[in-house]
């Protein structure tokens, strides 16, 4: 059961990473990078690392996405 969850998670992580690199729109690219972090935190939980999972969920997908959006907002306002 865990194995199936891990396989689906890893496929989603790779798909989201490809989206983050290939998509033309910056907003979607940044969001996809945040989703990669969020899925990675679930993967950490399955790898028996709950501390790392909490850190990644709070920092990788929360704060760092917000900082990206602050910068994107500033850039969009000027154009």
């Amino acid at each position: 059961m865990n194995l199936i969850i891990v396989i689906v998670l890893c496929l989603l992580i790779v798909a989201m990473a490809v989206t983050a690199i290939m998509h033309k729109k910056l907003t979607i690219s940044v969001l996809a990078a945040g989703v990669v972090s969020l899925l990675a935190s679930v993967l950490y939980l399955l790898l028996a690392a709950p501390d790392v999972a909490m850190t990644e969920a709070a920092i990788g997908s929360g704060l760092s996405t917000i900082i990206f959006f602050y910068v994107l907002n500033k850039i969009r306002n000027v154009k």
């Binding site: 983050a20 690199i21 910056l26 940044v30 990078a33 990675a40």
Partner: peptide
């Protein structure tokens, strides 16, 4: 694009963390 470069950097970062765990 500079923002895309930073996104690529953070993906590389996440990959390294998964590797070490």
């Amino acid at each position: 694009n500079i923002i895309k470069i930073i996104v690529g950097f953070s993906l590389f970062d996440t990959g390294t963390h998964i590797l070490i765990v």
